[in-house]
């Protein structure tokens, strides 16, 4: 059941590329931030700006798409170099709002994806535990959207992104095999978790960061459980340190709105 960890995770990547959602030549999450905010975050901003080569890997936000050998240490070192001693703001800052809005759209879309699977849950042949899991995970994503909405305040986006939903595998969820449905949901969870991790490197407010962290840590569990439900051996694709390679860009999430 257990396999040794490897650094590659190419099987999870490229789902959006295959569906033609466009390239991640520029890290759009980073570009959505004002210039002053970008200077605060040395790691992600610097890495993303350097990554200007057109790519077939639209998921990547913080790393070069084809570079799967990036070790965690340099990343942390760079992150540490940007540390200052000022107290970070607790309340949500204006620069955080587009990021929180994108996170909410992503969660609404994820919830809708689970809804598609739930509509045919009986035909999937899942056991009782897996069926209960599906219902819980759908509820979790709705709860995340609501929590993000509360933090955002009035005016947050209120609809999911249908284009993103299609790209994340709505068709597979609607008429794919049970194994494909689990695989699609597993990938969806990885996209969510990785995107939130990238957002954590951009959010200024500690309140926002705390909420996103509390979401991300459970979405990581979602992904692990769905992988095991597919019969995957734990360890084959698992990294010691998450690299956020499957993060979505702001444009992919919001459709440029």
């Amino acid at each position: 059941m257990i396999q040794q960890a490897s650094s590659g995770r190419t099987s999870r990547r490229g789902i959006l590329a295959a569906l033609g959602l466009g390239s991640a030549a520029t890290a759009l999450i980073t570009s959505a931030r004002p210039a002053q905010a970008q200077t605060t975050d040395t790691t992600v901003a610097a890495t993303a700006t350097a990554d200007t080569t057109p790519s077939t890997e639209p998921m990547l936000v913080t790393e070069a798409p084809t570079d799967t050998s990036v070790t965690p240490e340099p990343r942390l070192l760079t992150a540490a170099a940007g540390t200052d001693t000022t107290v970070p703001p607790k309340k949500v800052q204006p620069e955080d709002l587009p990021l929180l809005g994108a996170a909410k759209v992503l969660e609404l879309t994820a919830s809708e994806a689970y809804g598609i699977a739930a509509a045919r849950i009986d035909s999937l042949g899942l056991d009782e535990a897996a069926t209960a899991l599906m219902a819980s995970l759908a509820a979790h994503h709705r709860a995340y959207a609501e929590a993000l909405s509360a933090l955002y305040g009035p005016g947050s986006p209120s609809t999911s992104n249908s284009t993103l939903l299609e790209a994340l595998g709505a068709k597979t969820l609607a008429d794919g095999s049970p194994a494909d449905v689990l695989k699609t949901l597993h990938e969806l969870e990885h996209h969510c978790s990785d995107t939130h991790q990238t957002l954590l490197g951009l959010l200024i407010s500690t309140d926002a960061a705390a909420l996103v962290a509390s979401i991300q840590v459970v979405e990581a569990r979602h992904g692990a459980v769905l992988a095991l439900l597919q019969g995957q051996a734990y360890g084959a694709e698992e990294l010691a340190i998450e690299d956020a390679a499957d993060a979505l860009t702001l444009d992919q999430i919001t459709g440029g709105k």
Binding site: T40, R75, A79, A80, T83, L200, G201, L202, I204, A244
Partner: peptide
């Protein structure tokens, strides 16, 4: 104190 450190922490915490 910095977003970069927070992301780094959760890159481990999520694992």
């Amino acid at each position: 104190t910095t977003p970069a450190l927070r992301a780094a922490a959760m890159s481990v915490g999520s694992v």
